[in-house]
C-alpha cells in the first residue's frame, strides 16, 4: 500500500478531530469572545476596548438583575425536578413496553418542536389563559376559573416544562435503551422486591442519563426568555428576557456579554456539581470500545 497506514490512535484522531475542531471554533471561541467583551464598554452600538469591571459592578450592584437571576434559577430548578419526576415512568414505559414502536413514540415527543416556540406558547395561552379553553369551559359550566394558571409564575413554570420535558424523557429513554433489564430478573430471583431492585440497580445504573436529562432541561429553562413574556404576569421578567433586551432595544452589548458570562458561570457551576455525582464505572454508559 502506497499510503502510510495509520495506527488506531491516528485513525481515532482523523475521525474525531474535525468535529472537535468545529465545536471549539464555533462554540468556545464565541464564548471566549463574550468573556472578553464583558470587560469592555459600549457606546452608541459599538464595543470599545476600554477594560473595566463596570458591567459586573452594575450586575451585582443592582438588585433587580439579581432578582431576575434568582427567579430564573428557581424556575429552572423547579422545572428540572418536575420533569425528572414525570419523565422517568414515561421513559421507562417506552423503553420496556414500547416494543417496535419505540422510535415513533420518542419522535412524537420531538415533533411539537416543528411548531415554532412563539406559536406554541400562544397555543398554551389559548388553552390555559384567562379566555382559554380550560377556563372558558369551566365558566361555561358555572365553575370558578383556575386562577393560578393565569399570568403567574406557575403558568410560566408549566410553559417552560412544556417546552423542555421531551429532552428529559429522551435522555432517560436513551439511557434505558442500553440498560440490561435482565439484571432485574436476577435481582427478583434473588428475592429483591421491585422497588428495592429499582433503587439499587435501575436508578444508579441510569443516573448518568438522568443527569444528562436534568442538564438538558436546566440549561434552557434557566435561559428561557419567551415564555415569561407571554404567560408571566407583570413581575415575571426572566434573566434571559433582560439579557435579550441588551442586544435589541438598548444595544448595550458589553453589559449583555457580562450577563451572558454570568448565566454561563451559574449554569457551569450547576453542571459541575451534578457531574461530581456521576460515577462513570457504575453508569454503564461509557460506550463499548474494543
Amino acid at each position: 500500500m502506497a499510503r502510510r497506514r495509520l495506527g488506531p490512535e491516528g485513525r481515532f484522531l482523523l475521525m474525531a478531530l474535525p468535529g472537535a475542531i468545529f465545536v471549539v471554533v464555533f462554540l468556545l471561541l464565541p464564548i471566549l469572545s463574550i468573556i472578553v467583551f464583558s470587560f469592555w464598554r459600549t457606546e452608541s452600538y459599538t464595543l470599545i476596548p476600554d477594560w473595566n469591571l463596570d458591567n459586573y459592578a452594575t450586575l451585582f450592584g443592582t438588585t433587580t438583575y439579581m432578582t431576575f437571576l434568582l427567579r430564573s434559577f428557581t424556575m429552572a430548578v423547579a422545572v428540572s425536578l418536575a420533569s425528572l419526576v414525570y419523565a422517568w415512568p414515561v421513559a421507562y414505559f417506552i423503553a420496556k413496553h414500547g416494543d417496535r414502536y419505540r422510535l415513533l413514540l420518542i419522535l412524537a415527543l420531538a415533533a411539537p418542536f416543528f411548531t415554532g416556540i412563539i406559536l406554541r406558547v400562544t397555543g398554551i395561552q389559548g388553552v390555559m389563559g384567562p379566555v382559554g379553553v380550560i377556563n372558558l369551559g369551566l365558566m361555561n359550566y358555572g365553575l370558578q376559573p383556575i386562577e393560578f394558571i393565569m399570568y403567574t409564575q406557575t403558568a410560566v413554570g408549566i410553559g417552560v416544562t412544556y417546552l423542555f420535558i421531551p429532552f428529559m424523557v429522551t435522555a432517560v429513554y436513551l439511557s434505558l435503551l442500553n440498560f440490561d433489564f435482565e439484571l432485574l430478573e436476577v435481582a427478583k430471583i434473588n428475592g429483591a422486591k421491585p422497588w428495592r431492585a429499582f433503587i439499587e440497580i435501575t436508578w444508579p445504573l441510569n443516573w448518568m442519563g438522568t443527569v444528562i436529562g436534568l442538564v438538558l432541561v436546566f440549561i434552557p429553562s434557566m435561559a428561557e426568555s419567551i415564555t415569561p413574556r407571554f404567560l408571566g404576569g407583570p413581575n415575571a421578567a426572566s434573566f434571559g428576557q433582560v439579557l435579550g433586551l441588551q442586544f435589541g432595544e438598548t444595544g448595550t452589548w458589553a453589559l449583555g456579554s457580562a450577563m451572558g458570562v454570568l448565566l454561563f458561570a451559574v449554569s457551569s457551576l450547576v453542571i459541575l456539581l451534578m457531574w461530581r455525582t456521576v460515577n462513570l464505572q457504575r453508569s454503564g454508559f461509557t460506550g463499548g470500545g474494543s
Binding site: E9, V23, A223, F247, L263
Partner: peptide, 29 residues
Amino acid sequence: LKYRSRWRGLIAVIYLCPLFVADLLVGIS
C-alpha cells in the same frame, strides 16, 4: 466507540460541550 485512545474522554467532553450552553448564549456569542 470503535477506538481506544487516551483522548477519548476529552473528545467526548468537547462534543457534549454545546449541551451546556443555552441557545440564547450560542446566539448572542
